[in-house]
Write a protein that binds this DNA or RNA. Sequence first.
DNA 1: ATATATTGTGGGATCGATACCACAACTCGT
DNA 2: ACGAGTTGTGGTATCGATCCCACAATATAT
Lengths: 351, 351
Amino acid sequence: MRYGSAEIVPPDRRATIKEVAEAAGVSRSTASRALTGNGYVAEGVRLRVRQAASDLGYVVDAMARSLKQQSTRSIGVLVSDLRNEFYANLAAGASRQATRLGYTTMLIDDQGIPDDEVAAAEAFVALRVAGVVATPVSAAATKFLLRQRIPVVEVDRRFSDGECDAVVIDNRGSARAVTRHLIEQGHRRIALLIDEDDWTTGRERREGYVDALEAGGLPHDGDLVVPTGWDVEAARDAALELLRSPDRPTAIFAANNVLAEGAWRAAAELGLSMPDELSLAAFDDAPWMSMVTPGVTAVAQDASAMGRAAVQTLLERIADPGAGTKTVVLSASVKLRGSTVTAVPRDVRVG
Amino acid sequence: MRYGSAEIVPPDRRATIKEVAEAAGVSRSTASRALTGNGYVAEGVRLRVRQAASDLGYVVDAMARSLKQQSTRSIGVLVSDLRNEFYANLAAGASRQATRLGYTTMLIDDQGIPDDEVAAAEAFVALRVAGVVATPVSAAATKFLLRQRIPVVEVDRRFSDGECDAVVIDNRGSARAVTRHLIEQGHRRIALLIDEDDWTTGRERREGYVDALEAGGLPHDGDLVVPTGWDVEAARDAALELLRSPDRPTAIFAANNVLAEGAWRAAAELGLSMPDELSLAAFDDAPWMSMVTPGVTAVAQDASAMGRAAVQTLLERIADPGAGTKTVVLSASVKLRGSTVTAVPRDVRVG
DNA sequence: ATATATTGTGGGATCGATACCACAACTCGT
DNA sequence: ACGAGTTGTGGTATCGATCCCACAATATAT
């Protein structure tokens, strides 16, 4: 872009609406109306202002705007670990939906650390976000946000039941369905590999597992519920110990994809062939589960859809702050694969 | 929290510094100094103000602050597809580093769409971010941001060479190393599965591939460079066709993890055993590559470290806008696995 | 005792955009 | 020709926090 022979150099200060107004020969009020479309402006003037704005490379200052308007078009998204694809997909779904609906997203990864979660909540308040979508790791952040009158939607798990909206899947029902499937395959000793009991996810998955055992008339053997750490190594170690014991289970139900990876590695290490020597089922489908041989039976949750639904719910709440809280329960499907069956039937849908 | 017998209800308006000042019996100026720590405040007064702020649940309005200060403590992160774990890890690394250094992150997923990328850039300008980290899909967004005097760090690939900082890995060298490895395994017909040539990533990986062929005295057969779409399906189809041809290659080098998945599925479908009937190597290590049997040889880039380095570079640039642009080249390692070798040696480091 | 630092506080302008209100110019019906 | 309505524009206060500057009060030096 050249004017005469001189290269255009951008000014060192950004243009303000005042400069746009002067360039167009109108007042700031008129310029504002021309650019935002709120209020009367003659067509010719509107064009002149638009042209001046574009010439000057004017971009509205969202700070000044939202300071005046006392509201922002941005939402906060708080997830526990972006490197875990479940959260990444959730964030992607939320972010895209927000963009689609004209909101910008402030994303914070709190690494599952409660203190960081509260710090993130404070940052969101400082930024005056219109609302927050969070996968909570404690009740503190949500409480803090709600006290500040900022709408919150809890996703995946609940810490503030009834106090805010939520988007979850039917953990209990899905866990029950998978466990029932294992029972139907003839298994009598089915272990549950689980990392926590404090979150609704862990608790409900465990309840579903117990439900199915009871419905199937199987004893609920406490030794078969194996608590473990949250990472692959811990899960692998726990699974190794479990599978080396004399009365080892014939099937393992891993409560999430990380634990499933640990179990898978343990089984591979011990040379146990699936599904005959050991069956494995997981909560949370992950790409590798359909890449390995045999594939791993898993409950597939659409994390991206959860993110979308959460943003949707949040914006409805923003539009109507007075409405009663609601919980959206999304369905999940069980992907049957070679780790539990020899002839693989088509997907089963639950929830 | 109860006072007397009445439940405390939060006020419907958020507290401002003026209210904090009044509660503490000081002026707004003093309250500001007490809270920010800029300027003189008597110790007793500081405590009184802090207490008042905490009682009122005061949280600073970042909008008002940055409007006055004409600067923000937030950066923009622009990635192409959060569902792709490469970008997710990159974003996680960037986000965490930013948080660590006292910045908040605005994350946008532009889905690899140039128009969305430019829209995202405009949103960043409106929000007056201090800088932007981006995996560019065209030159437009970066140019726009630079014209607005907003520092940009391009990550993974370059569109604005020399005009801004960048963080990349040694694509050419890594591709050369992998291809050389395949040649050393005795392969003479090595196909390159690649989805694009317009980005520095694709171009350099291809150059590295060609380098190695030439160095190994092999003919550079154009038919062995297979262009394909960017998704798994397209890659699988291309690989299927390639592997069904009468003079099929004995090795495939997939230019990224998505294409590798397509190739893997194609090989599985055709029942080709690895590494004897077919060898497969990939650029971009993904979790499934170490879960499957045999494992897939791959160039492992530390996406999280790239994100960290990008934020680091960005903040240095913000601190010293006048310095010459720099390009940070991170190293990558080649993970040798069963898809190319029978006895698996330890990792080879390149770059 | 007076001059000079030091310590501490408040007043008021400022950042950029918006939106209410007043008002001007013009159209139209009677 | 006059009042009522429509169309269009500008002046000004405002959002919340910061920070420069003036200035008061006290401490220290000469």
